[in-house]
């Protein structure tokens, strides 16, 4: 295919359709975050601010999970930050795709906020640089809108529910963490890391203040990352 490099409107249309699908899904995901956040003891305002300013699902769920578990705010902060570290790594391909021009002036702080799992995946999946940029911005703007609308709706709806336990809302947080973890377990080494993390955190529950058992598993990731890979073709 060496004909034209110009992007046809069809491609833009296809990107918009994909982005809308992801955004609609994020709206529902955001609503569940709103519900879990309220069930964890945060106010509607705190929940909405989290989705607007943090705008990173796993970190948001982790923050409210640690606070809901009785953890001091001080332990919740590093937990959310360590889960947000992966977004910095998405910045490498995104900076390359957006280029110096695409990150000039005010575009850099705005683009940076939109660098998350979904936008990076949508952008790197395209081949044409123009389509990659279009996919990033379209997905980012739609997702941001739907995520925050969903969060507000979920938070407002669940703030009217009195008994969290009777509706099983306390099961939503661990189920959400499990759903976020699931696709990452395809790499065999990751299963060992997950098992070690779960065991260490459980063992520490009676020994250290709330919030710290989760934080204490970060060194597991560091050790696993520094270990030499035994087989070169480990990942599928």
């Amino acid at each position: 295919m060496t004909t034209v490099s110009a992007v046809s409107p069809d491609t833009h249309k296809a990107i918009r359709r994909d982005a809308l699908g992801i955004a609609a899904y994020a709206g529902a995901f955001g609503a569940s975050f709103g519900a879990v956040s309220i069930a964890s003891g945060l106010s509607v305002a705190q929940t909405v601010v989290l989705s607007v300013v943090m705008f990173s699902g796993a970190s948001q769920f982790a923050l409210v999970g640690v606070i809901g578990g009785g953890g001091a705010g001080l332990a919740a902060i590093p937990t959310a930050l360590l889960l947000g570290v992966r977004n910095a790594f998405y910045g490498v391909p995104m900076a390359r795709i957006l280029g110096r021009e695409g990150l000039r002036g005010l575009r850099r702080p705005v683009a940076a906020h939109l660098v998350i799992d979904e936008t990076t995946a949508m952008a790197v999946a395209r081949e044409d640089p123009e389509a990659q940029r279009y996919a990033f911005w379209t997905t980012g703007v739609l997702l941001f809108t739907f995520w925050n609308t969903g969060t507000a709706a979920g938070a407002l709806a669940s703030s009217r529910i009195g008994d969290v336990g009777a509706l099983g809302l306390d099961a939503m947080a661990p189920a959400a963490f499990l759903a976020l973890l699931w696709p990452r377990l395809r790499v065999p080494a990751a299963r060992w890391v997950a098992a070690a993390g779960a065991l260490i955190a459980t063992a520490l529950v009676p020994l250290v203040p709330a919030g710290l058992p989760v934080l204490a598993t970060a060194p597991v990731a560091v050790v696993a990352g520094l270990l030499p890979r035994r087989r070169t073709e480990e990942a599928p």
């Binding site: 999970g65 963490f177 973890l181 529950v205 989760v214 597991v220 990352g225």
Partner: peptide, 19 residues
Amino acid sequence: QRIAMFLPVAMLAALVATG
């Protein structure tokens, strides 16, 4: 990169367990 890949794995598993 490997540490960054394993960080969410260890911590999400820990969050499931403590939850």
